[in-house]
Every structure is written in C-alpha cells, then in structure tokens.
Computed example of a mutant assay.
Amino acid sequence: MNKVLLVFASMSGNTEGIAHLVAEGIKQAGKEVDIKEIFDATAKDLLEYDGIILGAYTWGDGELPDDFLDFYDDMDATNLTGKKAAVFGSGDHAYLHFCAAVDILENKLQECGAELVQEGLKIEMSPTSAEEEQCKDFGRKFAAQLLSIG
C-alpha cells in the first residue's frame, strides 16, 4: 500500500483545517497518510513516501511563510524523481498574489523531479461547507493517482 506524506504550515489554523480535510479524503480512498507540521518534517522525509502533498498559507504579498523556508531550501538537495505530488494552500484575495505559496511549492517540487498529478488547491481563508468537500475530493483524487504505482 502506498503511503502519502502531507506536510503543512499553518498560522491561523486555516491551512491546518484544509490539511485534515485532504487527509480525510486520502483515507476515504483507502490510502495511508502521515500528517506533519512543517516544524516536525525534513525534506529527507519526502524520500520515504510515494506521494507527497505540501500545504502552506501565503504570507505578505505572495511569499512562503518563514516557517517553510528551511524546508524549502533543503529540498534543493532532495531528488524526488518518481514521486507523485500535489500542493494546497490558503490565502486572501485582498493581496495581489492569491495563494502564491501554492505556485512556489509546485515549482520547487518539479525542480526536484516530482510529478505534479493535479492542479493546486487554493482556498480563500477557511473553507466553506462546499469547499470542505472540495478539499476531501482533492485528497481522494490524489490517492487515485497513486494506483498507477501500486
């Protein structure tokens, strides 16, 4: 059975809530998922999983949060070839670059050789009831992508 690692950074709890909804979807699809907050994870942890999901809020006017920076930099030395990946995040449309952290993390995963298997999920602040189902579906769809590798 393929395992998924979901690593997230959350300041207000919005991204953490999304992370747990995505994980619920993965479990509903019959896959195992380990959830780690960014401070409890290292880039080397990514090597132990077939599926990788990263989640972050966007800080300021389109930046990764500071708590994600060391992990992000450490990814440079991590070869993720053969890994399937996806990214989600929370943001605020009041800023010029909505959920830019999602785009930044997608680019980094691709630079490290991972295959992005679905479009990033971007949620305004905290998910509405309808978006909660969208988050679970994001997890289910990701889990379905792992079927092709076992």
Rank of each mutant, 00 (worst) to 15 (best):
Tyr95Gln: 08
Leu54Val: 04
Ser10Met: 06
Pro65Gln: 05
Glu37Met: 14
Glu48Asn: 14
Thr78Ile: 15
Glu115Asn: 14
Leu64Phe: 00
Ala23Glu: 02
Tyr57Ser: 09
Ser10Asn: 06
Asn79Glu: 11
Lys136Arg: 15
Asp70Gly: 05
Ala9His: 08
Val117Asn: 07
Ala86Cys: 14
Phe98Glu: 06
Ala19Glu: 08
Ile53Met: 07
Val4Lys: 08
Glu132Thr: 08
Ile18Glu: 14
Glu115Ala: 15
Gly55Tyr: 00
Leu46Thr: 04
Lys122Ala: 13
Ser126Cys: 13
Leu96Tyr: 12
Glu133Asn: 03
Ile52Cys: 00
Ile38Thr: 10
Leu47Phe: 09
Ser10Val: 04
Lys136Trp: 11
Val33Ile: 14
Leu47Trp: 11
Glu24Cys: 02
Ala143Gly: 08
Phe39Ala: 13
Asp74Phe: 08
Phe88His: 04
Pro65Phe: 03
Phe8Ser: 02
Gly30Ala: 12
Asn14Leu: 00
Ile26Met: 14
Ala130Val: 13
Asp40Leu: 11
Leu47His: 11
Ile52His: 01
Glu131Gln: 15
Gly82Val: 12
Glu124Tyr: 01
Asp74His: 13
Thr58Trp: 02
Ile26Cys: 04
Gly139Asp: 03
Leu121Ala: 06
Thr78Phe: 07
Glu133Asp: 13
Asp61Ala: 11
Cys135Glu: 07
Ile123Gln: 04
Lys84Ala: 11
Val33Glu: 10
Val87His: 10
Phe71Ser: 02
Ile149Val: 14
Leu69Trp: 05
Ala114Phe: 01
Asn2Arg: 12
Gly60Leu: 03
Ala114Gln: 00
Lys122Trp: 11
Val4Tyr: 10
Asn107Met: 13
Ile35Thr: 06
Gly13His: 09
Ala41Glu: 12
Ile149Ala: 05
Cys99Thr: 03
Phe88Asn: 11
Gln145Gly: 05
Glu124Trp: 00
Gly55Leu: 00
Ser148Tyr: 11
Leu47Asp: 12
Ala94Gly: 12
Asp34Trp: 00
Cys112Thr: 06
Ala85Thr: 08
Lys122Glu: 14
Glu106Lys: 10
Phe39Ser: 15
Ile149Ser: 09
Ala77Asn: 10
Asp50Gly: 15
Val87Cys: 10
Lys136Asp: 09
Leu21Asp: 13
Val87Pro: 06
Asp61Val: 07
Glu16Ile: 02
Ser90Val: 04
Lys36Val: 08
Glu131Tyr: 10
Ala143Glu: 03
Ser126Trp: 13
Asp67Met: 02
Lys31Thr: 08
Leu147Lys: 15
Ile38Arg: 02
Ala23Lys: 05
Asn2Tyr: 12
Thr81Tyr: 04
Val4Gly: 06
Leu105Val: 02
Asp92Met: 02
Asp137Cys: 08
Asp76Cys: 01
Phe68Ala: 09
Ile52Arg: 01
Lys3Pro: 08
Val117Met: 06
Ile18Leu: 13
Ile38Gly: 05
Asn107Leu: 12
Asn107Arg: 12
Ala94Ser: 15
Phe71Trp: 05
Tyr72Lys: 09
Gly82Cys: 07
Tyr72Glu: 09
Leu46Gln: 04
Ala86Asp: 12
Leu109Ser: 09
Asp76Thr: 10
Ser129Asn: 13
Val33Trp: 05
Ile18Ala: 12
Met125Phe: 13
Ala144Tyr: 00
Phe8Trp: 11
